[in-house]
Every structure is written in C-alpha cells, then in structure tokens.
C-alpha cells in the first residue's frame, strides 16, 4: 500500500477530511519553500502539493502566475527543485505531490524526470496539461517508478469519464471546483454541488477538492462528497503579502494552515 493510499484509507475510516496546502516551489526561494513545507506540516497539513513552475501556466490565475514569475526570476532549476525535495525527505514523512505542466517533464525526458522525482522522495505526480489520452504511457511509467498518479476532473467532466479517470489514476481524483483557473474565490456556482456529488459517486478513488478555496465556510457544504481539500492561491497571497519579512511570512502561512486544517479535521468528529 502506498503512503497516499494509506493516509486516505485511514482518514476514511476515521471520517476525517484531509488538508492539502499547495506551495509553488521556489516562491520566493527554494530555501523558503523548504521551511514553509515544514511549517505546513507542523500546522496540520496532511499531504502537500508542490508546484514545479512552468513559464506558461494556462490553468493558473494571477496569484499563482505571480508566484511562478518570482520563482523563475530567482533562478529556479528543476535539478535544484529535486535536491530540495531530497533535503525535505530527510526531515519529514509528509506525502508530497508534484504538480507541474508537461513541457518541463518532456524536456527532461519522461523516464529521467520520473526517476529523479521518485528518487528525491516525491509520492505522486499531477501533470495539469497531460490528459490520459496523451499520457497513457507516461502514467504507466510513473506507476512503475513508484509514484502515484493524480488526474483532474472538472465540472465539464461527465460522471462516466470520472469513473474512467479514476481507474487510470492511482492516487486520487483532484476535483476542480470551478470552470476556470486557480485563484481564491468567495463562492461557487450553484450547479456545483450536484456535479460534485455525481463525480464523487462515480470515482473509484478518493476525491480531493481544489481551485478557489479561500476559507472553511465556503467549502463546508461540499465536504460530504470529498476526502480532502486543496488550498493554493489563498496561501500564496500570504507569501506575497510578506515578501519583506521571512518570519512574518512563515507565521502568516502557518496560522492560515493551522486554522483551516483544524476546521477540516473537526468536520468528521
């Protein structure tokens, strides 16, 4: 049983909703990302998504775009990203999910990239612009390299397709809560609840909700149908607002994660 499978099955048994913060690696530096990951764990993160920046992130809104620019302008290299993950792995068992776009993977070569990811200690991979139609071989190779695979489902994905996606992926289904790009929002579309319910019923894997989540109240009505929640842009905003003080940044990110994870963890009780 993989680490990811295990954590979801334990959570399901305890009726506990998991919290997955998202951080953009290298925003503002890899050293700080390392510290922020450890801070996230300390404050209740159950798993963590690490974004490996790509210059043209078409699924991301302004907040993540700016994080990507900060990271790339500070000289992020894929190799250094893997080295940072290795350093993290020596300090924590927190399951880490790599989220990126296909071009960096392709440029490195699928096998070389997956081997490096696995060796560094990542647990799963999500490639935003690689639908399974284009990535059947890639997702197999990822499993062979010992990585779980995560596929996206969205409000435009039919329940039949969700069922198929969930038999191709091995980790979980990442349900995109909006028809749109990443970025903190205040509310969701009224049709969402039913679509999410159908997707959740169709999925053979755990379902994690993401995109737009900025607080507990807005996600609360949907928790019945999901196993976990991702928050990205709302956390990155804390980084963006505290670029001049490392201490304040870590404290601000930590307290946001502490509150949201505590709320989520209370849900099942």
């Amino acid at each position: 049983m993989s680490k990811i499978e295990q954590i979801f099955s334990e959570a399901a048994a305890a009726d506990k909703k998991l919290f997955l913060p998202y951080l953009c690696a290298g925003d503002p530096t890899l050293e700080l990302t390392e510290k922020l990951v450890l801070e996230a764990e300390k404050n209740g993160a159950d798993l963590l998504e690490l974004g490996l920046p790509f210059s043209d992130p078409i699924a991301d809104g302004p907040t993540v775009q700016k994080a990507v620019v900060r990271s790339l302008e500070n000289g992020l290299k894929v190799e250094n990203f893997f080295t940072m993950v290795e350093r993290l792995r020596a300090q924590t068992e927190l399951p880490l999910i790599l989220m990126t776009y296909y071009n960096p993977v392709m440029k490195w070569g699928e096998t070389k990239f997956l081997t490096a990811a696995s060796k560094a200690g990542l647990d799963a991979i999500l490639v935003v612009d690689l639908p399974p139609e284009e990535g059947l071989e890639f997702y197999q190779k990822a499993s062979q390299a010992g990585l779980d695979t995560v596929l996206l489902a969205t409000p435009t994905t039919s329940p039949e397709r969700v069922a198929e996606l969930s038999s191709l992926a091995t980790g979980f289904i990442y349900y995109v809560m909006v028809t749109g790009v990443t970025g903190a929002r205040k509310t969701y579309d009224e049709k969402l609840l039913n679509r999410l319910k159908l997707a959740s019923e169709a999925s053979r894997l755990p379902v994690v909700a993401g995109f737009g989540v900025s607080n507990y109240e807005m996600i609360e009505p949907y928790l019945e149908y999901v196993d976990g929640v991702v928050t990205g842009s709302a956390i990155i905003e804390k980084i963006e607002n505290n670029l001049t003080s490392e201490t304040a940044m870590i404290e601000s990110v930590g307290s946001f994660i502490r509150k949201l994870s505590a709320d989520l963890h209370r849900t099942g009780e």
Binding site: L130, P131, E133, E134, L152, A153, T157, R161, L168, T179
Partner: peptide
C-alpha cells in the same frame, strides 16, 4: 473510452495537451 487518438496527431506532433476543463 479513454484511448490514444492517432487521427488527432501529425505523426509524433499535435494532440490535445490541455487541462481537463477543455477536454469536453
């Protein structure tokens, strides 16, 4: 059923490398 669509490619080029929202 999810499968590779040869006719959507030009040899090893082309295809549909898009986020899931755009598949439908």
């Amino acid at each position: 059923e999810i499968s590779f669509h040869k006719e959507r490619h030009f040899g090893k080029f082309g295809g549909q490398f898009v986020p899931e929202t755009l598949v439908a």
